[in-house]
């Protein structure tokens, strides 16, 4: 316990962090609440001396907005599809990586690369791969147009080229590309924590299981998975939170118009909606949407924690 006459020293040393937190974290949160509760709030108008009524008008407006409902639907769909998929795939890769000895380090590095690569850049590469029109320089400096890498690849199996992301593409095709991209992007972090978890499991459990002639599948379901459950719970919770904030992947592939040409903003998400509202000087709407997003994430995380508490063995 610090003596009271020295307390000011403690506060002094803490003050840089506290001041920064107050300015850039606490005040924005309070201000978001304030802006959300002022009907039709607009920053420029407020500077011009306008006054706003206190009320829940912003929330009502957001919820009634068709664009917002599209965003909510897209966000939920991507979460529900990508979180289980990336978790299961990461788990399989981690278990396989853990069971091989040669090249383990190299493969670990390769699987980790997406994590350190810019997601917009990866998005653009994906956009090119899934493009229906790929560019290819032929003979005599002639520009020959061919289908993109992915369409070429599925063509090997006799599948006709699919319009993945270009004008006139189907919604399910767009979502498929996004799911592949998001899952691929989410793998490294999950593989890393699963591998860490797997390597911290005492080898003796596996020796004991071997002595008792346990089949491999049962070793996985009865020993590996339960002992890994804290990591799985952590991965799922953080993946859901990340999933609800999905934005840059869509910008990476479809550009900032958030959709294929001719059907813009079809793939917009909650965070995209917030950004758009801010850009169009509707801070009240953006704040309300941000608070709604916060409440959804909070509720989902609570459910996650409740479910994982029942099924996790620490």
């Amino acid at each position: 316990m610090v003596e009271s006459k020295h307390k000011w020293k403690a506060w002094l040393y803490l003050s840089p962090a506290i001041v920064l937190l107050l300015i850039f974290t606490v005040w924005p949160i309070i201000n978001t609440l304030r802006m959300a509760m002022l009907e039709g709030y607009n920053g420029t108008a407020e500077l011009g001396g306008a006054a706003f009524n206190f009320g829940i008008g912003n929330f009502v407006k957001v919820v009634q907005y068709a664009k917002f409902l599209t965003c909510l639907k897209n966000t939920l769909l991507l979460c529900v599809l990508t979180v289980p998929l990336s978790t299961v795939i990461a788990l399989l890769i981690a278990v396989c990586l853990n069971s091989i000895k040669p090249l383990q380090r190299l493969l670990q590095t390769i699987f980790f690369l997406p994590y350190v690569t810019n997601s917009i850049a990866i998005g653009m590469v994906f956009a090119t791969m899934f493009n229906i029109i790929g560019n290819n320089i032929g003979g005599e400096n002639q520009l020959i147009t061919t289908a993109g890498v992915i369409n070429n690849f599925i063509g090997l199996f006799g599948v006709d080229p699919i319009n993945w992301i270009n004008a006139g593409s189907a919604y399910w095709a767009n979502i498929t590309v996004l799911v592949i991209y998001i899952v691929w992007d989410a793998l490294p972090f999950k593989i890393l924590i699963f591998l860490g978890g797997l390597q911290s499991i005492n080898k003796q459990y596996y020796d004991a299981a071997k002595i008792d002639s346990t089949p491999k599948i049962r070793v996985f379901t009865r020993i590996t998975l339960p002992l890994l459950s804290p990591m799985v719970a952590y991965a799922v919770i953080t993946a859901f939170i990340g999933g609800f904030k999905e934005y840059s992947s869509i910008v990476g592939i479809f550009g900032e118009k958030m959709g294929p040409a001719g059907d813009q903003f079809r793939l917009n998400t909650m965070v995209g909606f917030i950004y758009d509202s801010l850009a169009s000087n509707q801070q009240g709407l953006a704040s309300a949407a941000a608070l709604i997003l916060f409440c959804i994430i909070f509720a989902v995380t609570m459910v996650n924690l409740y479910v994982s508490k029942k099924n996790t063995h620490y």
């Binding site: 005492n202 003796q204 459990y205 020796d207 004991a208 071997k210 002595i211 008792d212 002639s213 346990t214 009865r222 020993i223 339960p226 002992l227 459950s229 063995h313």
Partner: peptide, 20 residues
């Protein structure tokens, strides 16, 4: 013969009881 086919019982130094 590998361990799973020998039909032995083994008690490990740290017991290796499945904690869950």
């Amino acid at each position: 013969l590998s361990a799973e086919n020998r039909g032995i019982g083994l008690v490990f130094q740290n017991y290796a009881l499945y904690p869950h």
